[in-house]
């Protein structure tokens, strides 16, 4: 019996050579313990050195290798060929992003938005290092920990139809990271992030499709983060309107 093989149909686009993308089929050996990334590396090494894609850690933490695999955004290092075998696997660059080349998407938009939300600890008064750490109980860590797990892999943006239709939308990961700092007991910068979060392209663009949470490989639950930001923002608004003299 011949050794089993599997077919990959890979999205190809080269800005110097093509106006539009096409798909190319590669037939490669099938190995039960291979992930899609292994298959792509095999193609790169043995069949076609021109295929361009990003990868590094191959253990699901660097966030480089997100791709659309049979239409679903996945980390290619965590998607096993055996989930698809014997059917062909269709590999495309992450949806909703411009394609630089082949499976490489342009990340500029997210990098810009990430900075917009001030994703760093903001304090009115910085305690000197000689006074030691800020105290934070395990419960207080648990309050934001989930949102700190984002690896910026962009699967959530690829899953979000709102981002597809309105590219100005701040998007799931950036909002989740803003929430990560807003919910950190050491942080005092929520009001500084509010302007961006509540802007026209911020949290209110989200219509709660919820697919970002489904796509997230780190269980960050960006959809939940966005809804919680909406709730917090609404409560703030009522406080301002009903108790304009109130302060805190």
């Amino acid at each position: 019996m011949p050794d089993p093989t599997i077919t990959l149909e890979i999205f190809r686009y080269h800005p110097e050579q093509n106006e539009t993308p096409s798909f190319r089929r590669y037939e490669i050996p099938y190995r039960e313990d291979w992930v899609v990334l292994d298959a792509i590396n095999y193609i790169k090494d043995h069949i076609d050195g021109t295929l361009a894609y990003r990868w590094s850690c191959r253990m699901g933490v660097c966030g480089s290798c997100g791709m659309m695999i049979n239409g679903t955004p996945r980390l290619s290092c965590a998607a096993f060929l055996r989930e698809y075998y014997p059917n062909p696997v269709r590999v495309e660059p992450l949806a909703n992003f411009p394609v630089e080349r082949d499976l490489v998407i342009a990340l500029d938009d997210f990098m810009h938005k990430l900075r917009e939300v001030n994703p760093w600890l903001i304090r009115a008064h910085e305690q000197p290092l000689s006074d030691g750490e800020y105290r934070q109980t395990p419960d207080e860590v648990a309050a934001y920990k989930q949102y700190s797990m984002c690896i910026n892999c962009m699967l959530c943006y690829a899953a979000c139809p709102v981002y597809a239709l309105e590219p100005r939308f701040l998007g799931p990961a950036a909002i989740a990271l803003a929430q990560r700092y807003n919910l950190d007991s050491r942080d005092q910068g929520r009001s500084q992030r509010e302007a961006v979060l509540s802007s026209e392209d911020g949290i209110w663009d989200c219509t709660l499709v919820g697919e970002c949470t489904v796509a997230c490989p780190e269980h960050v639950d960006p959809a939940g983060a966005i809804q919680r930001a909406k709730l917090a923002s609404t409560i703030d608004w009522y406080k301002r309107v009903l108790m304009p003299w109130g302060g805190r």
């Binding site: 290092l129 934070q136 207080e140």
Partner: peptide, 17 residues
Amino acid sequence: IQLEHWGCPWSREPDGS
């Protein structure tokens, strides 16, 4: 400690240290 001040989510003792 500098990393802690920048927000690193270090695991904690029950007293917050």
